[in-house]
């Protein structure tokens, strides 16, 4: 029932770790998010050192997002063109973010920036999604027609006036290639600061700003997360020795199945129902983070690393 982890140097319950993987994988398949924002705190709660929890997360997300993306690819839900532009942006943004964190770590301000960024970003994204989805669900119930995106007129004209105009066939939208690049850069920057894959930011922005259909958003987001996490896994293993292969194996046993179940479940749920569910989870994490920030911790000491 227990397995010893060679890098974390601790023994863990096989079923408990796979169960954590299953829950996070379920969210990954359901919403197209990597789940790093949930996995790292859960692993720390069972005694995994923070740096190893964060490093190993990336490795198991590779498995979960491969599994989830494979299903979405078969369903025709991946916009590769969009995904590659997002990836280019996120690689660049991530590199800048890593440098910012390095500089702030030296001055001691990184921890504060990370926590505040989490609270602000998750709070904004969660609240917006919740209100928007709730109003969409109410309108659907009352039989009212969906309003046209008239309020986006100014934003659209700005986007269409940018160079490198491209049509994204799978998503059914047309705008400048600079838009997904800039979005990827912003998410990559925030992801590097916050230490997560960035799916929970990418998904709402693609839905609400770029007006891409929900099912394509999930598949494309998983595509971007997969490649980001491949890069992160290699860098963490090579430079920091913080990837525990056995821990990742236990997590991915649960997460790959969870991702499949999530993807199947996602097809049975309405897009607005999915959005409202994700917004509730994001808001719950925000509330937990706020409590973590303002309530005195049980112990004031911790090992270096993690958030």
């Amino acid at each position: 029932m227990h397995m010893y982890l060679p890098i974390a140097l601790t023994s863990v319950n096989f079923l408990l770790v796979s169960g954590i993987g299953l829950v996070v994988g379920l969210l990954s398949g359901l919403f197209g998010v990597g789940g790093g924002w949930l996995m790292t705190p859960l692993l720390m709660m069972i005694g995994i050192p923070p740096t190893i929890a964060a490093g190993t997360d990336a490795n198991q997300i590779v498995a979960a997002s491969t599994s989830g993306m494979y299903t979405h690819w078969r369903l025709g839900n991946v916009d590769y063109k969009m995904g590659i532009y997002l990836l280019i942006g996120s690689f660049l943004g991530g590199a800048v973010g890593v440098k910012i964190i390095k500089a702030l770590t030296a001055t001691g301000g990184a921890d504060f920036l990370i926590k505040i960024t989490y609270v602000v970003m998750l709070g904004i994204v969660g609240s917006f999604m919740f209100v928007e989805s709730l109003s969409a669900l109410r309108k659907a119930k009352s039989g009212a027609a969906k309003p046209a995106a008239a309020q986006n007129g100014t934003k659209k004209s700005l986007i269409t006036s940018l160079p490198l105009q491209t049509h994204f066939e799978k998503s059914g939208v047309s705008f400048s290639a600079l838009v997904p690049c800039a979005l990827g850069a912003l998410v990559g920057l925030l992801a590097a600061i916050m230490g997560v894959g960035g799916g929970f930011l990418m998904v709402p922005v693609m839905i609400y700003m770029l007006r891409i259909p929900m099912h394509v958003v999930v598949g494309t987001s998983l595509f971007q997360i997969l490649f980001t996490c491949i890069e992160v896994t290699f860098l963490q293993a090579y430079y920091n020795r913080t990837v525990d292969f056995l821990l990742a194996l236990l997590l991915l046993i649960g997460s790959v199945f969870g991702a499949q179940i999530g993807a199947i479940l996602g097809r049975k749920l309405h897009g607005d129902q999915l959005k409202i569910l994700l917004s509730v989870i994001v808001l719950a994490v925000t509330v937990k983070l706020v409590f973590d920030l303002v309530l005195q911790p049980a112990n004031l000491l911790s090992y270096a690393g993690g958030h």
Partner: peptide
């Protein structure tokens, strides 16, 4: 291993 596991389960 992670990619193989993901594809395998898929």
């Amino acid at each position: 291993v992670a990619i193989a596991a993901g594809f395998g389960v898929g």
